[in-house]
Amino acid sequence: MAGQFEAIRIKYGKVGPGRYISHLDTIRAVERAIRRMGLPVLYSEGFSPRPKMTFAAALQVGVGSVAEHMDVLLERGIEPADVLCMASSAFPETMPLIAVGRFGGGYALPAKIRRARYLIKPFCRDEAGWSCGSLQDAIEAFKATPSVTVLGRDGKEKDVKGLVYAVRAVDGALEVEVACGDKNLRPQYFVDALSAVSGGLYSGAYDFCRTGLFIDLGRGLQDPMDDCADTAFSEVFRS
């Protein structure tokens, strides 16, 4: 990249109705938020200049998140803490900013994404077929099955087993780490697979939330914010 620039990495969430914002709508919403903040972003050339931003990994419509990431190129340096301050009213409540850090550059964020973590629970816990005991059984059954595939929404067979790296039951919910990046597994497919091997889990809709995203820079998996300096965290999400 030519010329002088500074980059920041932003971590944000999609909460409440925010989960229904599609990836393209998210990009537009962030562009607007950036304009509202008056952040000195670099713009692309051409008839309709766009702010130079890179999003880590698209999130499916309907899935909430507290682990969305993007890199933004700025004309000049700005303290991450100041960015957080500027963003407080510019980002909608349903898309809250969680952390901002200075990013040294050198790679494109989406190319380094390897894994995503999701927390999955039924919207309605009291429905039949969902209990901690049965969850554990289902997980064991999944682990014991050498290969599990499901039929995707596009009608194609999807390998699930090979794309699931970790799974456990936490407080009546499922926590799963799956491939994200060049290989991808929708959390819904994981649930479908789990349901298939365990003979039915729960028939209602699930509440999916992405709780972590991991990059690989050759030093093992890490949180994208760990590759930043001067990171400032939002009060609300400090926990």
């Binding site: 109705p17 599609s22 919207f123 209602g204 809709a205």
Partner: peptide
């Protein structure tokens, strides 16, 4: 809200139209 979240919005096209929460 419960019916929207659990039964309706996961099933319809462009659920963002029906969810509110806009800036």
């Amino acid at each position: 809200r419960r019916r929207l979240e659990q039964r309706i919005l996961p099933m319809v096209q462009k659920p963002g139209r029906y969810a509110g929460g806009e800036l």
